[in-house]
């Protein structure tokens, strides 16, 4: 594999794994959201996000990286390229037992991630890799609804009284602990940018900062002044223990017999 091919695959894994793992976290909320109507709406967005991950895995499949199902379910944690932010648990407990989930964190994480995703897709619209240009346009269509939806939640939690506002602001601070990890392209960053696949990380970060600050300022909220260096660089395959748990769950059935038709 030459440098450009390697760079392309690395970027595709980042795109696919971010969406895949966040969609998994979203699916853990199924049946547990604060309001029944919201439960239904949130699930649609988790499905959209997992659908986007599938589109990226299928692009990798076409490049000969392996089948989409194998890529999603049989790689080891250190082969995953998602940012650590998306693998963070929804709270303490397990989705089947004592899920002490934090809705403020769900709103803050999903909204700030999806704003980043918007910026990243916008940048991919001028990618040198044509299939990424086309796919980005499609995904942005669905993302518009997500952003409207999370903006509404941000507004309502921000304006929902002191407790709610404090919880949301705390969740934003918690998300921002991991935010730098989104703006890493990992060890192959130079090759990714040199191949013209996407704008460089600092450009993405500047655009995201502008968007996220505006979105929060509208609701009297703010981002922290500085973001700590990430505890793990997910793009380099560094992950928390939680990712291993997530992957074990995701592949529990498939691993019984990956050769079987399911």
């Amino acid at each position: 594999m030459n440098t450009d091919q390697k760079a392309l695959q690395e970027l595709l894994f980042q795109l696919a794994d971010d969406d895949f793992i966040l969609a998994y976290r979203g699916s853990e909320w199924l049946g547990l959201a604060p309001h029944i109507e919201e439960d239904v709406a949130f699930s649609s967005m988790s499905q959209d996000t997992m659908g986007h991950a599938v589109m990226f895995y299928e692009m990798l499949e076409e490049l000969g990286a392996g089948t989409a199902d194998d890529l999603a379910q049989l790689r080891k944690p250190q082969d995953f390229r998602n940012a650590v932010l998306v693998e963070r648990p929804n709270g303490t407990g397990h989705y089947m037992e004592q899920p002490n989930y934090d809705w403020a964190y769900a709103v803050a994480r999903t909204y700030l991630y999806e704003l980043f995703k918007w910026v990243r897709l916008e940048a991919l619209m001028s990618s040198s890799y044509q299939p990424l240009v086309q796919i980005s346009r499609k995904m942005m269509t669905e993302l518009r609804y997500h952003l409207m939806h999370w903006q509404t939640w941000t507004k309502h939690l921000a304006g929902g009284g002191q407790e709610s506002r404090d919880r949301l602001q705390a969740a934003i601070a918690q998300v921002c602990q991991d935010i730098e990890g989104l703006f890493s392209f990992g060890p192959h960053a130079d090759a990714i940018v040199a191949a013209g696949l996407i704008a460089d990380a600092s450009t993405l970060k500047a655009r995201w900062l502008e968007k996220a600050s505006d979105a929060l300022a509208k609701n009297g909220l703010a981002l922290p002044d500085a973001f700590p260096a990430p505890s793990h660089d997910g793009r380099a395959g560094e992950h928390t223990e939680q990712l291993a748990d997530v992957l074990n769950t995701l592949s529990e059935v498939y691993r019984l017999d990956p050769a079987a038709a399911w």
Partner: peptide, 20 residues
């Protein structure tokens, strides 16, 4: 019909509840 605190929240949930 659905339950919501106001129009805006109702709108943010309407399509996914009835027009999936």
């Amino acid at each position: 019909s659905l339950l919501a605190p106001n129009h805006e929240v109702a709108m943010s949930m309407a399509r996914e509840n009835f027009l999936r």
